[in-house]
Design a protein around this nucleic acid. Structure first.
Length: 1016
RNA sequence: GCCUUGGUGGCGGAAUUGGUAGACGCGCUGGAUUCAAAAUCCAGUUCUUUCGGGAGUGUGGGUUCGAUUCCCACCCAAGGUACCA
């Protein structure tokens, strides 16, 4: 009986769906285990073989854990808000909700293109997902809870005394009692202090404005990259060389009022939390760098002739006597105020120039030094000497305080700036030469020329200067974080609307929770409005009626009971910051609470999370922030949502290239047959030369001449006497992508398929390696191959559906794992799949040793060798799965099946446990064989075989005998032989004598059970 | 520049605590079977060689009886990140 994978896989996929085999229960005697994948964005292009890599790995682990007796939760859903659907909507006018649904569920889009749908594609691969818990972030019953969390953030503040988020009402009562003087909270830098009396005297508007300075989500002016031509805000990577990537329009930096998340309140806890999660070190490192904790001091420099002070943060307060100038970011608030009339023109010009440069550009350009003197002077806190205040675009407004105390002798950037503008470079280091470059080493010198700091090393000097600054009231020790509050507004359509309306003063109010969700309004077009408002500005029904508690027409806005709603939507990471908790609900559409407390207390957190490392500082940092906030609110029992995380590597594509040889045809006009349309013929006649022929064509004139002759024969036959000659333009050979599906395992092109692929290739002529023309159905055209990112435009995407069709899902799963270590990136090459596919056929045959391949297992006692094969396989596979080393267990299966086949093993005692071992990797064939073995229940919860050491015990060992560390021959010796006996047995061996060639060994190392090494 | 990961046959990769380098698979070569092909099976396949051997895991050193593995210096590639004061 043949291994008919198509019908087997179909049968079991239907069985699992019908029996809800993988539906997880929230109530079980078993220990829980939660395996999570990063949910996909459902794009119209569908899945390629790179996508399921992580899903296969997590599925193997989930299935393994079921065999190990765990109650496993393994859900899947869709991150279905996002830009591609919106852009598609702009282009085609289709509602993003419609295209998103088709991308998930399959169907035909408006242009008649058939879309398979993510769900169908995923189902074909045999994943053990519990689909009853599916979520889609763009469904109103899901984003209801995204909006709800936003409201909770708005109604919270961060108490640094208790180090957690607390209810805003508690803050208000504190203000009523004592003002804000004894409140330690994370709040805006510019928050004034006030007493209880002040508070009570404030107007409602003033109160709300003050509270915004404390709320965990708040409205603030933030700088954005504004593109006036597109009427939209661009991300850093949508800007290339200062202009928009799309269209090349100018981009300016502009301030906009937007929602921000006070993630900085959690900076230290986000850092500390990394200690307790088992995540890859590089990922932790990048989060650590992103948070960017640095310890130093804040120092206030008084300005001469102004009341204001310039605050700076420095990690080197010990070098304060080396300050010879200060630099402000051009956007710094004080710049306009302090610039002297003489310098105004230069400063204004510089600010304007800076506004045109993106932040990324400013940061990347290290070589150009630019800046302008403001004309103002600050005062050194100790020497009272005047310090010139400059502006420079190497200082960024968003970092620290947007101002730097420049110490050119200790910082290379300050040094370069000072050299460039001829500013004094005082040396404050003992015995250090700074004539060539700054000295940034903290450890190897002591401070000099610094009054009370003279002779002190870095640490003591830092401590002392901070104490002195505190005495003066001009500074204090401070920990600074690079992390900035996260802007949370997007000027887009396809995202979660804010449950927020504004009064006439522009103050925000939250809609009451019971009226959520506030669903996205319909709009005519998905572009920004003509006045530059976000797409929601196109909606005609987008106002909140506080009486009827409904979204009503904009025309009803009276700013008394009906108010304008927020026109922004939330960013992509809003919906993905809690989806893993929502999966815990038995009913993902739970409308009563975000997640049931029973569910969250049962599942607690994710035990294994698999996904790409590109989310290191986005999704994975924001999610940790939301989780900590929800932990503070008592909504979740764990303040880290995922115990262990694995980053799967990227699968790259192996592109195929054909070489097109341009030719020029010469004609003899006199004899030309007028009826022939030569122009078209020439255009349609393309010559493709085999990859290996290219270099010889270029180098060897004879090869080229032979080809020329062959081609001339063809064209003479075609055009008759009107044809004169062919000239080959060997130097103009072009390399073009060919679709990888047209290339076989030996890199041969399917010529007929290639001709049909594109009409212009229909009449093409192909030349093989040896320079011969390939006639008829011939083969032998070899393509060049190169590894590149898998992408549609490179014609190197490999579709998993086609692989499932040809080889089956089990082969695909096994092959994806066999390619190499999960965490590394590796190239895809479909050719190799025959290896794992024939392994599955061998596995099948192992159970079908009967007449004409009939199923046959027996109840005979297995041989010692078969027991050994089984148990070493159990041991290795178990270790491999625990270590996420899936590629090596595939090899182990191959070895086991090869051995058992040659042992002619058909024993139930071996074959039954073997199929359980294989089943997490190739579940369909495993279920089928399990059923044939007589079982009526799914294999999915069959207990994992238990490893027994006794089957591996050996009595002898084939010792490698090495000379000076090099293995030269092997010798079989009993394992219980003593060291001395081994030594004499080896030395007596004739090959030893041959190796030694008469020399006496200096030393003989015997490691019993391992190796013998003879030195000499 | 800094951080991270990696560098092993023609290719993907294996070698889990320092102990037989190249498991397993692809590809390739030869053979069996077949009218032929596919499929299947068998043998070989790091390089080099005077067929005794010799060399060999990015490069150069070191530790060790023994190094792909540990240490030092460097080169290359990929990813991340930045005038973070």
């Amino acid at each position: 009986m043949q291994y008919d994978f198509n019908s087997i896989e179909k049968k079991w996929q239907e069985y699992w769906a019908k029996n809800q085999t993988f539906k997880a229960s929230n109530d079980s005697e078993k220990e829980k285990f939660y395996v999570l994948d990063m949910f996909p964005y459902p794009s119209g292009a569908g899945l390629h073989v790179g996508h399921p890599l992580g899903y296969i790995a997590s599925d193997i682990y989930a299935r393994y854990k079921r065999h190990k007796g765990f109650n496993v939760l393994h859900p899947m859903g869709y991150d279905s808000f996002g830009l591609p659907a919106e852009q598609y909507a702009i282009q085609t006018g289709q509602h993003p909700a419609d295209t998103t649904r088709v991308n998930i569920e399959g169907g035909v889009d408006k242009e008649g293109k058939k879309i398979e749908g993510y769900r169908n594609q995923l189902d074909r691969m045999g994943f053990s997902f519990d689909w009853s818990r599916e979520v889609r972030t763009s469904n109103p019953d899901y984003y209801k809870w995204t909006q709800w969390v936003f409201i909770q953030l708005f109604n919270s503040w961060y108490n640094t005394d208790t180090d957690k988020a607390e209810d805003i009402s508690d803050l208000i009562s504190a203000f009523e009692k004592n003002g804000n003087t004894d409140i330690n909270a994370v709040c805006d830098e510019d928050t004034p202090s006030f007493s209880a009396e002040d508070w009570k005297a404030f107007s409602e508007k003033e109160k709300q404005e003050l509270l915004l300075k404390y709320r965990l989500t708040y409205l603030a002016e933030s700088e954005v990259n504004w593109c006036p031509a597109l009427g939209t805000v661009l991300a850093n990577d949508e800007i290339v060389n200062g202009v928009s990537e799309r269209g090349g329009h100018p981009v300016v930096r502009k301030k906009m009022t937007q929602w921000s998340m006070r993630i900085t309140a959690y900076a230290q806890r986000l850092l500390d939390g990394l200690q307790k999660v088992d995540w890859p070190q590089p990922l932790k490192d990048s989060q650590t760098n992103w948070i960017g904790r640095s310890v130093g001091a804040s120092v206030d420099f008084n300005l001469k002739d102004f009341e204001n002070t310039i605050s700076v943060f420095t990690t080197r307060p010990d070098t304060i006597f080396g300050v010879s100038f200060m630099t402000l970011a051009p956007e710094h608030d004080l710049v306009v105020k302090i610039t002297t009339p003489e310098q105004k023109e230069a400063v204004d010009a510089y600010i304007e120039a800076t506004a045109k440069r993106s932040e990324r550009e400013r940061m990347a350009d290290v070589k150009t030094i630019s800046g302008v003197f403001t004309g103002a002077y600050a005062e050194h806190p100790f020497t009272k000497e005047p310090i010139p205040v400059w502006i420079g675009d190497y200082v960024l407004a968003g970092y620290g305080t947007g101002a730097v105390m420049a110490v050119p002798c200790g910082d290379q950037r300050d040094y370069d700036f000072a050299k460039h503008f001829n500013i004094d470079i005082p040396n404050i280091f003992e015995g250090v030469d700074i004539s060539e470059e700054a000295f940034a080493d903290k450890e190897n010198t002591v401070i000099a020329n610094s009054d009370f700091l003279n002779g002190l090393p870095y640490k003591e000097a830092t401590k002392k200067v901070i104490a002195e600054l505190e005495k003066l009231g001009q500074g204090e020790g401070k920990v600074n974080y690079r992390l900035r509050d996260a802007v949370f507004s997007r000027q887009r359509y396809w995202g979660e609307p804010f449950p927020v309306y504004y009064d006439a003063d522009g103050l925000p109010y939250m809609i009451e929770e019971e009226y959520l969700p506030i669903t996205l309004p319909e709009v005519d077009k998905y572009l920004p409005t003509e006045t530059g408002e976000p797409p929601l500005g196109n909606a005609t029904e987008w106002a909140w009626d506080t009486v009827s508690k409904k979204v009503v027409a904009n025309s009803k806005i009276d700013n008394e009971t009906v108010f304008a709603l927020d026109l922004n939507t939330m960013p992509g990471w809003a919906g993905s910051s809690q989806y893993f908790n929502i999966y815990m609900n038995v009913d993902p559409k739970n409308s009563q609470e975000i997640f049931s407390q029973d569910a969250i207390n049962y599942w607690q957190d994710v035990d294994l999370y698999i996904g790409g490392s590109e989310h290191a500082t986005g999704h994975l940092l924001y999610s940790r922030f939301w989780q900590k906030f929800m932990f503070d609110k008592g909504l979740v029992p764990k303040d880290e949502f995922a115990k262990k995380l694995i980053n799967q590597g990227m699968i790259t594509g192996t592109s195929a290239f054909v070489y097109r040889l341009p030719i020029t045809l010469g004609f003899d006009k006199e004899n030309l047959d007028e009826t022939y349309n030569i122009k078209n013929e020439v255009l349609n006649t393309q010559i493709f030369v085999s990859y290996t022929l290219v270099s010889s064509l270029v180098k060897d004139a004879d090869v080229a001449a032979d080809l020329q002759t062959s081609l001339e024969d063809i064209f003479t036959g075609k055009y008759g006497k009107g044809f004169a000659n062919v000239s080959l333009r060997v130097d103009d050979i072009q390399k073009i992508h060919a679709d990888v599906s047209l290339v076989n395992a030996s890199d041969e092109l399917d010529i007929e398929g290639f001709k049909k692929w594109r009409p212009e290739f229909a009449e093409a002529i192909f030349v093989d390696d040896t320079g011969r023309l390939i006639i008829g159905k011939g083969n032998g055209y070899i393509v060049a191959r190169e590894v590149e990112k898998m992408s549609k435009s490179k014609y190197n995407v490999v579709n998993p559906d086609a692989i499932c069709e040809e080889f089956g899902a089990d082969s695909l799963r096994l092959y994806e794992m066999f390619l190499g270590p999960l965490e590394q990136s590796k190239p895809w090459n479909t050719a190799g799949i025959t290896g794992v596919h024939s392994f599955l056929k061998k596995l099948w045959r192992l159970y079908h040793g009967g007449v004409d391949g009939a199923f046959m297992v027996n109840d005979e006692e297995p041989s010692k060798d078969s027991w050994k094969t089984l148990h070493k396989t159990i041991k290795k596979v178990e270790e491999d799965i625990e270590n996420f080393s899936f590629n090596t267990s595939v090899s182990t299966f191959m070895i086991a099946v090869n051995e058992l086949s040659s042992q002619k093993c058909a024993s139930r005692q071996i074959l039954e446990p073997l199929i359980i071992l294989v089943s997490p990797y190739t579940p369909h064939i495993a279920e089928e064989l399990w059923e044939k073995l007589g079982h009526t229940e799914s294999i999915s919860e069959a207990p994992f075989p238990k490893f027994e050491e006794k089957y591996l015990v050996e009595s002898s060992k084939e010792y490698p005998i090495s000379f000076n560390g090099k293995m030269r021959f092997k010798l079989e010796l009993p394992l219980d032989m003593s060291k001395e006996d081994i030594e004499s047995a080896v030395l007596a061996h004739e090959k030893t004598q041959q190796q030694l060639q008469g020399r006496t060994p200096k030393k003989v190392i015997v490691v019993p059970g391992k190796i013998v090494n003879i030195v000499g």
